[in-house]
């Protein structure tokens, strides 16, 4: 699956990264809590969130994520989109709620990111 498939499934608006829609994605994560995202997400994960401040982009930067989807028609500020573009992120806006957006992506074949191993267990590579 590539980001263009997510655009189609959600009928999403592409806010930045139109030229990077062929980037592969393997899983998704849905949260407004960035610490949860930082706990278990890997780079080919899509982050679906309602959090439109700089920390969504910052979290994507820290984890090398390639795609952010803002749910319920939320559009972040221009400074945030400019930073996302600078980092090579694709940013999408879904008019659906987070729940419905996640459901549409799941029905389209995208699956959730793996949960973290128990404390002390080996880390995912």
């Amino acid at each position: 699956m590539v980001i263009a498939d997510l655009v189609r499934l959600l009928d999403a608006q592409v806010l930045c990264g139109q030229d990077r829609l062929d980037t592969p994605v393997v899983s998704a994560c849905c949260s407004d809590l960035m610490s949860d995202v930082l706990a278990f997400v890997s780079e080919k994960t899509v982050l679906l969130t309602g959090l439109t401040n700089m920390h969504a982009v910052r979290t994507a930067e820290i984890l090398d994520l390639k795609c952010l989807i803002f749910a319920r028609g939320k559009v972040p500020g221009d400074d945030i989109l400019a930073r996302a573009d600078e980092l090579g992120l694709v940013v999408l806006c879904s008019r659906h709620t987070m729940f419905t957006s996640a459901g549409l992506l799941y029905a389209g074949g995208l699956r959730g990111a793996a949960l973290p191993e128990d404390e002390g267990a080996p880390r995912a590579g």
Binding site: L33, A39, L51, A56, E119, R123
Partner: peptide, 17 residues
């Protein structure tokens, strides 16, 4: 919490990583 933090995962995340 409005910023997406304060969920009580910070220190456990640090220790895990």
């Amino acid at each position: 919490r409005d910023m997406g933090f304060g969920a009580g995962m910070g220190l456990p995340n640090m220790r895990r990583n």
